[in-house]
Design a protein around this nucleic acid. Structure first.
Length: 465
RNA sequence: GGACCCGUAGCGAAAUUGGUUAUCGCACCUCCCUGUCACGGAGGGGGCUGCCGGUUCGAGUCCGGUCGGGUCCGCCA
C-alpha cells in the first residue's frame, strides 16, 4: 500500500491510509491514546483505542516520542466540537487499525517543539541533525531551496549557463586567506580552496560562455561572525558585453524582486527600482558603505534594497603598508589614464557596486578590466612585481592576450539574504550544518588530528609545542 | 591577535550581603483517566554547580587560571 502524507489525509475522508512519520506527542487517557504523527508535510492526529487489541498494547507500553511509525488507519471527519483550527489537518483524524514501529529513539537531548533560540547553541550544533527536526529550521531550509530553484529558473530563461568551477584551486596573493590543501603527489605544494569562482568565471567569458552563473560554494579561512562563515554560498553571475553596470544591477534587482514576491510574499520592498547611492554619499550621510535604509526598523517585513555605487578602486592596507583592491584587482577603474592611476590611487573610482539589504551587504559586482595594461597597472599600484604576478596569474594574463570581451558580473551572498528574509540574526540559522565562531564543527568534531601515516604520505611534519 | 558576556540535573531557569539537605518548569520513569491536541492528576529518579587552584570557620556565590559557547574589533580582494 502506498504511503500517504499527513497533509493529503484531508481529502481522503473515510479512506484507508498508510501514514509514516515521527511521534511528535503522545496524549494518553487510559483507554484512548492520541498520537501526533509528524512528517515533512505536517501533523496528523492518530486515535488509538482498546478495540485495536494487541496493537493498542504496543502503543501503550512501547511507543515514545520521536519513535518512527507506520500507521494503517481510516481517515475520519472530526465532530464539529473536536476540530482543531490550529492544525492544517485539524478537520480530520486517523482511526488507527495497525501500527508498526520502524525505528526507536532515545530521549532527545533538548526540546524540538520550540523555536530553539533558548537552547545553548553548542548543544544545537553538536546534535544538529536533531536540531533540524524543529519546524523553524525545516522552514528556513525549505525556503532556501525554493529560492535557489527560482533563481536558477530566472537565469536559465535568460540564457545563463550554470557551470561548476573547481573548489580545489590555487593560492594567490590577493584576497582572503585561503584554506590550504596539501598535495600528496607533489609534496610541499598546496591547493588553495576557492574563495570565489572569480577568475574561473572570467575565463569562461573568454571561452565564449557569454552568460554564466553558479550557485557557488566559497571558502575563506577568516574568523567567522554572525553574518559570516568559513564556507558560504553565493549566487555567482558573469556576463559578456553588458550594457554598462546598469544591466548587471538590473538583473540582480529583477531576481530579488521576483524572489521576494514569490517566496516571501509577506515582505514588501521599500522602493522599486532599488535606489542608487554613491559610496561617497553613503559615507558622508550615514558613515557606512552599507547603511540600513529601512524607514521603519520595527517593521519586520520591510526590505530596503539599495545599490551603493562608485566605490574607490584602491584602499590603503595598513597591515601590509601598501595599496590593496577595494573590491578585487580585476575591477575596471573609472579612470583609463594609466599615469593618473599610478600617481594618485586614492582618487580613482571603480565601476563597482554593492547591493545592500537592511544594512547587510548581500551582493557585490563590477565591470572587469579587460584591457591588459589596466590590469597590470592595478597590480603595480598594489605593489606586486609584474614578474611575480605573471607567474601567479599566468593563466589570467594569457587568457586576456588571447582575447576577452568586455564583461562584468556580480556575486550575491545567499546566506545573508536568507538570514534577513527569514528574520534570523545569524546565518547559522539558515545553513544546515554551520560551524562555530572558531570554525569548529561540533557535530563532526572537525578539524581533527590525522594519523602519522596520512601526514607522512603528504610529507608533513607537525611541530611539537 | 585583542576586548567583553555566559557556563547550576537531559534542556531552560532560580538560589538575599558568602551561611542548613541547591529550588522550579519542561523532559524522563511508575500509576490513574475514552476526546485530548503543549491533555490533566498522583508519585518518583536524576547534581563533583564545566574543570584546576586560591581566599574563608564556611564558596554555586569572591579571586586567579583553564576549557567550552556567544558577541564585537582586527581580518573578511
Amino acid at each position: 500500500m502506498k504511503r500517504v502524507l499527513n497533509i493529503e489525509t484531508t481529502n481522503k475522508v473515510n479512506e484507508e491510509v498508510l501514514l509514516k512519520g515521527w511521534v511528535s506527542s503522545i496524549r494518553e487517557h487510559g483507554n484512548i491514546i492520541f498520537i501526533d504523527l509528524r512528517d515533512f508535510s505536517g501533523l496528523s492526529q492518530i486515535v488509538f483505542t482498546k478495540k485495536m487489541g494487541e496493537s493498542y498494547e504496543i502503543v501503550k507500553n512501547e511507543i515514545k516520542t520521536e519513535y518512527i511509525l507506520e500507521v494503517l488507519g481510516e481517515v475520519k471527519e472530526r465532530p464539529e466540537n473536536m476540530i482543531n483550527p490550529e492544525l492544517a489537518t485539524g478537520k480530520v483524524e486517523i482511526k488507527a487499525k495497525e501500527v508498526k514501529i520502524l525505528s526507536r529513539a532515545k530521549t532527545m537531548p533538548f526540546p524540538i517543539d520550540t523555536d530553539g533560540y533558548e537552547i545553548n547553541e553548542k548543544y544545537r550544533l553538536e546534535y544538529r541533525y536533531i536540531d533540524l527536526r524543529r519546524d523553524r529550521l525545516k522552514n528556513n531550509l525549505k525556503k532556501r531551496s525554493d529560492t535557489i530553484n527560482l533563481m536558477r529558473e530566472i537565469l536559465r530563461k535568460k540564457d545563463f549557463v550554470e557551470i561548476e568551477t573547481p573548489i580545489l584551486s590555487k593560492s594567490t596573493v590577493e584576497g582572503a586567506r585561503e584554506f590550504l590543501v596539501p598535495s600528496r603527489n607533489f609534496k610541499g605544494s598546496f591547493y588553495g580552496l576557492a574563495q570565489s569562482p572569480q577568475q574561473y568565471k572570467q575565463l569562461l567569458i573568454s571561452s565564449g560562455f557569454e552568460r554564466y552563473f553558479q550557485i557557488a560554494r566559497c571558502l575563506r579561512d577568516e574568523d567567522p561572525r554572525g553574518d559570516r562563515q568559513a564556507e558560504f554560498t553565493q549566487l555567482d553571475i558573469e556576463m559578456a558585453f553588458p550594457e554598462g553596470k546598469e544591466e548587471i544591477m538590473n538583473l540582480m534587482e529583477e531576481i530579488y524582486i521576483d524572489v521576494t514576491q514569490k517566496i516571501f510574499p509577506e515582505k514588501h520592498i521599500q522602493q522599486i527600482p532599488f535606489p542608487r547611492m554613491t559610496y561617497k554619499e553613503a559615507m558622508e550621510k550615514y558613515g557606512s558603505d552599507k547603511p540600513d535604509m529601512r524607514k521603519d526598523k520595527t517593521d519586520k517585513n520591510e526590505l530596503a534594497f539599495y545599490f551603493i555605487t562608485d566605490f574607490p578602486m584602491f584602499e590603503w592596507k595598513e597591515e601590509y603598508k601598501r595599496w590593496g583592491a577595494c573590491h578585487h584587482p580585476f575591477t575596471l577603474p573609472q579612470e583609463t589614464d594609466i599615469e593618473k592611476i599610478k600617481k594618485d590611487p586614492a582618487s580613482i573610482l571603480a565601476h563597482q557596486f554593492d547591493l545592500v539589504l537592511n544594512g547587510f551587504e548581500i551582493a557585490g559586482g563590477s565591470l572587469r578590466a579587460h584591457d591588459i595594461d589596466i590590469l597590470k597597472t592595478s597590480f603595480a599600484v598594489m605593489g606586486h612585481e609584474e614578474k611575480d604576478v605573471r607567474v601567479q596569474f599566468k593563466h589570467y594574463f594569457d587568457a586576456f592576450e588571447y582575447g576577452i570581451p568586455p564583461h562584468g558580473g556580480i556575486a550575491s551572498g545567499l546566506d545573508r539574504f536568507f538570514a534577513v528574509a527569514l528574520e534570523e540574526e545569524s546565518i547559522r540559522e539558515v545553513i544546515a550544518f554551520p560551524k562555530t565562531g572558531d570554525n569548529k564543527d561540533l557535530m563532526m568534531g572537525s578539524p581533527s588530528p590525522v594519523s602519522k601515516k596520512q601526514l607522512k604520505e603528504l610529507g608533513i611534519k607537525i611541530e611539537d609545542e
